[in-house]
């Protein structure tokens, strides 16, 4: 008989941070063990932006003039953030299906650590994804024109959007029947990207679609980023389009306020 060490049961902020960090490191270890998967995930948006920029770019007019590649780059950054919800969903649904979530729930760890660890890991990955896209953008001729502080603020807004999407990602994954539902999330993500100002001016869409696109949370972030980068932009007709920066803060905060408590509760009450 080997004598086992004694552990400690604990809740509270301190353990949320420590246990959350253990789980973030778990995600880092995943990337180290599966570098191919990670690299493919980072390069997918690069492929999309190259396609958009060079294949379709010639045909597209930027309203009010300007370079189409410079126009779409902030949209592509935001798209990379929005795609991130798929990674969140896949990771959480996979753990739930494998019983890993239930093992965590049966352990004396801080319950909130599971979602905190997930959020931190996803943000780290998104920082890497954003960095790759920025390099790709610079190579394609995109620039920020209004100085580094404004550019940093724009990157902050992009990561804020990504942070907000962690929570619906977790919530939907815990609600879903299994990891197979990822396909449904992937299918839903595309209209969010296309029905926004990321790739085209909402003004060129049929009236009501244009309004939907202008109110799309992703458009808010894209518009605010274009302003902060000093990139070519579109002027919309709706109130949302006129208050890009405000909406780029309000939307993510609203999404977080709704889905963070929902996802934490869903995690705690699983199987009740």
């Amino acid at each position: 008989m080997i004598s086992a060490p004694a552990g400690g049961g604990a809740t509270g902020v301190r353990w949320t941070v420590i246990d959350g960090w253990t789980l973030t490191r778990r995600a880092l270890a995943h990337w180290a063990r599966r570098p191919g998967e990670m690299v493919a995930g980072l390069l997918f948006p690069v492929m999309v932006v190259v396609m958009m920029g060079y294949l379709f770019g010639g045909q597209m007019d930027v309203p009010g003039g300007g370079d189409y590649r410079e126009f779409i780059m902030p949209g592509m950054f935001a798209m990379t953030m929005v795609f991130g919800i798929e990674a969140t969903f896949a990771a959480v649904a996979g753990d739930a299906a494998k019983g890993v979530t239930d093992r965590f729930r049966s352990m004396p760890m801080a319950p909130s650590a599971v979602v905190v660890g997930r959020a931190a890991a996803d943000l780290l990955y998104s920082v890497a994804g954003l960095a790759v896209m920025v390099v790709c953008g610079l190579a394609m001729g995109w620039r920020w024109h209004d100085g580094v502080p404004a550019a940093l603020a724009a990157f902050g807004l992009l990561l804020l959007l990504r942070f907000a999407l962690v929570w619906p990602g977790i919530y939907l994954a815990l609600l879903a029947k299994g990891p197979e539902s990822l396909v449904a999330v992937q299918i839903l993500v595309w209209p969010v990207v296309f029905l926004s100002s990321a790739l085209v001016a909402p003004g060129t869409m049929p009236g009501w679609l244009g309004a939907v696109a202008e109110w799309n949370p992703m458009s808010a972030t894209v518009t605010a980023c274009r302003d902060l980068f000093g990139d070519p932009t579109v002027t919309g007709t709706s109130w949302a389009a006129g208050h890009g920066l405000l909406m780029a803060l309000a939307w993510p905060l609203a999404i977080t306020a709704v889905f963070l408590p929902l996802s934490v509760r869903r995690y705690r009450d699983r199987g009740r």
Binding site: G7, G8, G9, A10, W15, I18, D19, T22, L23, R25, R26, A29, H30, R33, R34, K98, G99, V100, D102, R103, F104, M107, P108, M109, A113
Partner: peptide, 20 residues
């Protein structure tokens, strides 16, 4: 219920850490 991406040792160390 184990992490299928991590190694066996990584799994046990992770769970050990989570047991504090």
């Amino acid at each position: 219920a184990v992490d299928e991406v991590l190694s066996g040792r990584q799994n046990l160390v992770m769970f050990g850490r989570l047991y504090h």
